[in-house]
Each structure stands twice: as C-alpha cells, then as structure tokens.
C-alpha cells in the first residue's frame, strides 16, 4: 500500500500540470456551492444582477434595501412565510422511517441470500439488479392511478413504503456482499450449540454487522433524502418534503424575491449533506467502491 504510483520519481513540469488540474477541479466542484451560500444572504437584484455581476460581491442593492451587507430575508421568507420548516419535518419523518425499515428488511434478506447457496438465491439477486435498473419515474407512473383509486395517494406512509421498496434491490446487494465476508462458522457453530437460525442471526451476527449496516444505511439515507421523482408525484401539497417543495418555489418565481426563497431553501437542504459527507467520508468511499473493486 505504501508504495503507490505517486511515489515514483516525477518531473517538475508534470507535478505542476497535475496539481493545477486538481486545483481547477476542486474549484469547479466547490465554487458553485460557496457562491450560492454567499448569494443566499443577498437580495435578488444583487445575486441575479441585471447590470453588473460584481453587485453580488459588493452587495450594493442589499445595502440599499436592507441597510446591511448581508440579509437573512431569504431564509425568513422560505422557512417562516413559505413554511419550509414543515417540509423539513416531513423529510425527517420520511427519511428516518425509510432508513430504519429498509435496513430491517434488508439485513434479513441479505443474510438469507448470503447463506443460502441454492441457485434461486442467484436468480433473486439478478431480479434485484433488474429492479434496480428500472427508472423510478416509470414505477411512479404505475402507482398513481391505483393510489388515487384506493385513496392512499398523498400521505407520508405511502411515500415511505414506496421508497423502502425502491431501496430494497440496492440494500439487498450491498448487505448480501457484506454478510458474505462474515465467516459462516460463526453462526453455524451457534446453531450446533442449539440455536435456531434466527437466534443465531440475532445473537451472533447482529452484534458484528454494524459497520456494513451503517454504510448501507448512509446510502439508503441519501436515496430517500435526494429523492424527487417519488415524493414530487406521490405526496400531496401539504405533505411535501424538501426537494419537491424547492421545485414548487421555482413555479412561483414571478413574484419578486421568491427565487431567493428557493436559493435559501437549497442552501438549507444542502447543509445536512455536507455534514454527512464530512463525518462519514470513509464509509461513503468504501461503499461506493465495494461493488467495483471486489468484483
């Protein structure tokens, strides 16, 4: 591990070129977020200046309109006037429930798939792969009419169940490959000692499975948190989560200043993700590469 490609001798020119490139990439990746964060404390005529883009830096209009270089107007408008807090609350409920239910179903299923050894386990995994490839919007187009007919359209539990189901293929794959790494002897010796399969799972496997479950949970979280296609079409207006709420701000931008509500909402919705990546960077990286590097 210690001697990687980078440790070979390199020419200075190459170092300069490659470092410049990385710096450029870091700018491209990060600048849009900083710019939006900066702009969210300005008024619309500064951030989207018709006259001069430097207005966004100096904040001339913000000075004139509010008396300070920065203003919290956009946040106040989004969170209080447009009740973004309600959307944030809905997102919390949906995401938390989706992650907990997905992981519960996924650990049971993934464990069974990892220990079965029969051919149908392979077929189920293939089926899950096909299900994973289905564009979510096509599934939503299948739900809407029945949901209207059964009067279950628009409620949070409906969205939660749908998100759990859509999440299952990925969760099963990930946890299945994780359980494969836990030695079979562990639970089998517990069964020799007289445990049933479920007792063995509960007493021996559950205590050691948390690293894999946390990594999988992160991705379940991201799927539920970032979802637009399901929540935008399945939830009614008053039950909207954050992402469809932001989309609905866009429809009403004719009123002056409303686009700034969207900017403030975007910054608010991105902040938790930053914190998540900051704390779980290692797990995210290992989760992303698990499927690829190990085969």
């Amino acid at each position: 591990m210690s001697a990687t490609v980078s440790s070979q001798r390199k020419s200075t020119a190459l170092v300069v070129v490659s470092t410049t490139f990385v710096v450029l990439w870091v700018l491209i990746a990060a600048f849009p977020f900083f710019w939006t964060l900066w702009g969210s404390f300005k008024v619309e005529s500064d951030f989207f200046s018709r006259n001069d883009w430097t207005n966004a830096l100096t904040g001339i209009r913000t000075q004139i309109e509010t008396g300070g270089a920065f203003t919290g107007q956009a946040y106040e408008g989004a969170w209080i006037r447009e009740e973004f807090w309600r959307a944030a609350l809905n997102t919390t409920i949906v995401v938390f429930s989706t992650v907990v239910i997905s992981l519960t179903l996924g650990t049971l299923g993934g464990y069974a798939l990892a220990r079965s050894g029969y051919r149908y386990a392979f077929w189920l995994l293939m089926l899950a792969l096909i299900f994973r490839a289905m564009p979510h919007i096509t599934l939503v187009s299948g739900y809407l009419l029945p949901f209207f007919e059964w009067n279950v359209w628009g409620h949070l539990p409906t969205a939660i169940i749908v998100l759990v189901a859509i999440n299952q293929p990925f969760t099963l794959w990930m946890l299945h490959s994780f359980f494969l790494q836990i030695p079979k002897d562990l639970d089998e010796s517990a069964m020799v000692d007289g445990c049933s399969r479920f007792e063995a799972f509960w007493r021996v496997i559950v205590p050691v499975m948390w690293p894999g479950v946390i990594t999988t949970g992160l991705f379940s979280f991201l799927l539920a948190y970032n979802d637009f296609q399901v929540t935008a079409l399945v939830l009614s207006q008053e039950n909207q989560t954050m992402v469809p709420k932001i989309a609905s701000f866009l429809g009403s931008t004719f009123e002056a200043g409303n686009v700034m509500f969207a900017v403030a909402a975007v910054v608010s919705a991105t902040a938790p993700l930053f914190v998540l990546v900051l704390f779980f960077q290692r797990q995210i990286v290992s989760g992303l590469t698990a499927g690829a590097v190990k085969g």
Partner: peptide, 19 residues
C-alpha cells in the same frame, strides 16, 4: 428471512410494471 423484502419489491416494483 427474505419474505418481507421480496414482498415489498413485488408489490411496489413488479406490480407497478404490470400496472
């Protein structure tokens, strides 16, 4: 073990394709 997960996928992925 697999039943809850499979049920969720059949009801909300396979059936919608049928729908």
């Amino acid at each position: 073990f697999i039943f809850p997960s499979l049920l969720a996928m059949l009801l909300f992925i396979a059936l919608p394709i049928g729908s």
